Simulated scan of single mutants.
Amino acid sequence: MFGRRQFAKAMGVAAFAVPAIGRAKKFPAGRVTMVVPFPAGAATDISARVYAERLSAIWGQPVVIDNKGGGNGIPAAESVARAKPDGLTLFATSAMTQVVNPAIYDKLPYDPIADFAPISRMGTSPFVLLVDRNSPINTAAELTAKLKAEPGKHNYGAGALPARVASELYKMAAGVDAVYVGYKSNPQAIPDVQSGLLTFMMIDTVNAKIAMDRGALKGLFVTDSERYAAVPAMPTAAEAGLPEVLLTTWTGFYAPKGTPAEIVDRINADLYAVSAMPEVVERLAALGGTPKLMRPAEFAAFASAEKERWGQIIRRANIKVE
């Protein structure tokens, strides 16, 4: 049985480096609203609820999830950007709103950097290249060969723009052609992979694990530098011969710009405390995720670099708003 230090070490978080002043600051009284720019059941929503439940216990006040799905997360992001910066409105979001939207929209009603106070990264999640469980295709090389032999005759699906970006990155690296089919959410595309309407799809590890556990789909590779711990037999993209396909989406916590630094630091400290809880580690691991928190300044620098990287891929793939 691991102790807290061992869990923290395994997670890569400095659970015992929490500033005492951050933990001592009294949290603002009132109901905390945690806005999630995706519907209930989405990967970001699932992780946010794990944190919200424990933060509510720490603060002794309700932390309520407000799912504002749709519009590629724009309405949700705008609502947080315009909210009162008192610590009672938080944004549990993903790379979608902070680094993908700025690259595909000429104009947004929010600024992903100027309108938010970064609190911490929540976690990271690579993508998995998936085909139907009963498909004769068992490797990325076999899929690539099929797509090259029949250019323009195959479709792929994505319900979220990050998954589409990952798919386009695979297409560019492999030199293949496939037609994009859009869905409202990634899980909605799964039945069409099974029916043969879609030849493949890329999806985050949380939903990929669910689909693989159900026996619906099988994974050909993961877009990370290391193998996916939940499916250790599945190779990385580099091991599958496509080292360029290295892309990881992420989730994180923000507050409206102007939220006092002492409140941001307090939330950051409590997020670290929650991430050190064994049941949280186990719960997120079961979903295929791992807490990878950051201090506010570190998270701000990370998000800025990610904005540039994702933007380069999106421009190269010529992904436009439809």
Results as ranks from 00 to 15, higher is better:
residue 158 A to W: 08
residue 79 S to D: 08
residue 311 G to N: 03
residue 271 L to F: 02
residue 204 D to A: 07
residue 26 K to I: 15
residue 93 T to S: 10
residue 129 L to C: 10
residue 86 D to R: 00
residue 157 G to A: 03
residue 210 I to Q: 14
residue 202 M to S: 08
residue 70 G to T: 05
residue 219 G to F: 02
residue 46 I to T: 14
residue 51 Y to A: 02
residue 185 S to I: 09
residue 107 K to C: 09
residue 205 T to L: 03
residue 223 T to Q: 00
residue 251 T to M: 09
residue 9 K to F: 13
residue 67 N to T: 02
residue 145 A to W: 13
residue 89 T to C: 08
residue 239 E to Q: 04
residue 235 P to Y: 04
residue 72 N to I: 06
residue 6 Q to W: 14
residue 75 P to A: 07
residue 206 V to L: 13
residue 233 A to H: 14
residue 128 V to Y: 13
residue 127 F to K: 03
residue 53 E to S: 09
residue 285 A to E: 10
residue 174 A to F: 03
residue 244 E to N: 05
residue 7 F to V: 15
residue 73 G to D: 01
residue 103 A to R: 03
residue 297 A to R: 07
residue 208 A to F: 06
residue 302 F to P: 03
residue 215 G to I: 08
residue 255 A to K: 00
residue 307 K to W: 12
residue 124 T to N: 12
residue 291 P to M: 10
residue 45 D to P: 06
residue 277 M to A: 13
residue 74 I to L: 07
residue 18 V to L: 06
residue 293 L to P: 06
residue 280 V to S: 04
residue 58 I to G: 00
residue 221 F to D: 11
residue 188 Q to C: 15
residue 11 M to Q: 15
residue 141 A to P: 02
residue 29 A to F: 08
residue 147 L to S: 04
residue 81 A to F: 08
residue 135 S to L: 10
residue 38 F to L: 14
residue 87 G to K: 04
residue 17 A to P: 12
residue 282 E to H: 15
residue 142 E to P: 00
residue 33 T to H: 07
residue 262 E to W: 01
residue 103 A to F: 05
residue 266 R to G: 13
residue 207 N to Q: 09
residue 151 P to L: 09
residue 261 A to C: 07
residue 195 S to Q: 14
residue 260 P to A: 03
residue 225 S to N: 13
residue 28 P to E: 06
residue 240 A to I: 02
residue 22 G to I: 15
residue 305 A to S: 12
residue 322 E to D: 09
residue 141 A to T: 04
residue 49 R to M: 08
residue 57 A to N: 03
residue 251 T to P: 13
residue 56 S to V: 01
residue 183 Y to E: 12
residue 293 L to S: 04
residue 203 I to F: 01
residue 317 A to M: 00
residue 143 L to K: 11
residue 14 A to T: 03
residue 135 S to R: 06
residue 174 A to V: 01
residue 261 A to Q: 14
residue 73 G to H: 02
residue 275 S to V: 09
residue 278 P to M: 04
residue 83 A to L: 11
residue 242 L to K: 00
residue 136 P to N: 07
residue 183 Y to A: 09
residue 54 R to V: 12
residue 123 G to F: 15
residue 302 F to W: 05
residue 321 V to W: 04
residue 7 F to D: 13
residue 88 L to N: 11
residue 216 A to D: 13
residue 135 S to G: 10
residue 289 G to S: 14
residue 34 M to E: 13
residue 19 P to T: 14
residue 46 I to N: 05
residue 287 L to P: 00
residue 244 E to Y: 01
residue 151 P to S: 09
residue 95 A to K: 12
residue 61 Q to N: 06
residue 271 L to P: 04
residue 293 L to C: 02
residue 183 Y to L: 09
residue 173 A to M: 08
residue 202 M to G: 01
residue 153 K to V: 07
residue 313 I to Y: 11
residue 163 A to D: 05
residue 122 M to S: 10
residue 98 Q to W: 07
residue 3 G to C: 06
residue 123 G to W: 15
residue 129 L to Q: 00
residue 243 P to R: 05
residue 288 G to R: 04
residue 227 R to W: 06
residue 114 A to Y: 09
residue 59 W to M: 12
residue 84 K to Y: 13
residue 265 D to R: 15
residue 163 A to F: 01
residue 276 A to M: 01
residue 270 D to A: 07
residue 87 G to W: 02
